[in-house]
Computed example of a mutant assay.
Amino acid sequence: MSITTFLELKNVTRTFSVEQPLLSKAPRELTAVNDVSLRIEKGTTLGLVGESGCGKSTLAKIVAHLLPPSSGDVLLEGESIWHGSREVTHSLPRRIQMIFQDPVSSLNPRKSIGKSIQEALDVHRVGKPRERKKVVTDLLERVGMRAEHYARYPHEFSGGQRQRVAIARSLVLNPDFIVCDEAVSALDVSVQAQVLNLLTDLQTDFGLTYMFISHDLAVVGHVSDTIAVMYLGRLVEFTSTQALFDNALHPYTQMLLEAIPIPVPGRRSIGTPQHGDIPSPLTLPEGCPFHTRCRRVMPVCREVAPQWLEVEKNHHVLCHLYA
């Protein structure tokens, strides 16, 4: 089977105006996503990982057509989702869906879960009412629920069950691409494994392409074909999952790998502790933003911003160590 580029981000940037206290200067700009470019191949999973506040969720909303970029573009099978034709824009709800981190806030407490899932079918007038209900009950069973759960409300289910409902809702229009924004981070570890296995099975059955976002590199490594690492709005490393775990190049990626807990009682991680706090996105340091925390910092890191390099085939990194 040939591999084709399904979704492509081209120099995507998103800035926000941040109001200052009274009697201060004019509002400043916060760059949440800074010149991000990457590709996702059809039928694969891209893992997007980084600490809280690095811009993952902002990028997810841009890809899901929920938040416009300040500059740059997103192409879906070669068509711009932000500057394309009206036909492309109108087709996006059927092609791109999103699974949110917290199913409690993303599900309407006044609607039964069946009605919440069916709402998209009603809006797009897909099939007749009886057919729509059949689609929903079939989906509920496919994600591990029961058909009789159709009439129950979100508060009657556990966190894992609510996330299964959210997954069913994302599938109801038969999309091609799903953005999973911290889709398992609020769940217990055992439930996480069940939901991750469900997502993997659904990808095979429905031919889905995923963008899987998390701060947990171990979880991302379990489900992803490629991994992009973000730090303060910029990509710092992008390669296949195997290459990243075998030979992480960027010191920040190495730090994230060392932070993964070792599941052996009594055994401690051998990683070297990192020093320094994350800089404020409003007052980024000169040069490389990571140099204030990097154990391999060089004088050039404090003065010159690094360039995006392909160090090995399909292994890109943003670091002076490999210039």
Rank of each mutant, 00 (worst) to 15 (best):
E131N: 09
V165T: 06
R132F: 01
Y150H: 07
V136W: 00
E148G: 13
V135W: 07
M145F: 09
A166L: 08
R169H: 12
V165Y: 04
V136L: 07
R132K: 13
R142D: 10
R142Q: 14
L171G: 03
D138Q: 15
F157I: 12
K128N: 13
G127K: 09
A147I: 01
Y153Q: 03
S170C: 08
Y153L: 06
G160F: 05
E131H: 09
P154K: 01
R146V: 15
Y150C: 06
M145V: 05
K128D: 08
A168S: 09
K128Q: 11
P129T: 05
V136H: 01
V136F: 03
E141D: 14
Q163C: 11
V165K: 02
V143A: 00
R130Q: 11
Q163V: 09
P154D: 04
K128I: 10
S170I: 02
P154V: 02
E156S: 13
D138G: 12
R146E: 09
R162W: 09
P129V: 06
I167A: 03
P129K: 02
I167Q: 01
G159I: 14
R130M: 14
F157L: 15
M145T: 03
A168M: 02
E156R: 11
R162Q: 10
V165I: 10
K134A: 13
R142T: 11
H155G: 15
G144N: 08
R132N: 04
L139C: 06
R146S: 09
V136T: 08
A151P: 02
L139N: 02
Y150G: 03
L171R: 01
R169Y: 06
A151E: 11
R132S: 05
K134Q: 15
E141F: 07
E131Y: 08
Q161G: 05
G127Y: 10
L171I: 09
K133R: 15
V143R: 00
L139I: 04
R164M: 08
R152E: 04
K134R: 13
V135K: 15
M145Y: 09
I167P: 08
E141Y: 05
K134D: 13
L140D: 00
L140Q: 01
A151R: 14
R130I: 07
G159H: 11
R162F: 06
A147F: 06
E131V: 09
F157E: 15
R130W: 15
H149I: 13
G127C: 07
M145L: 12
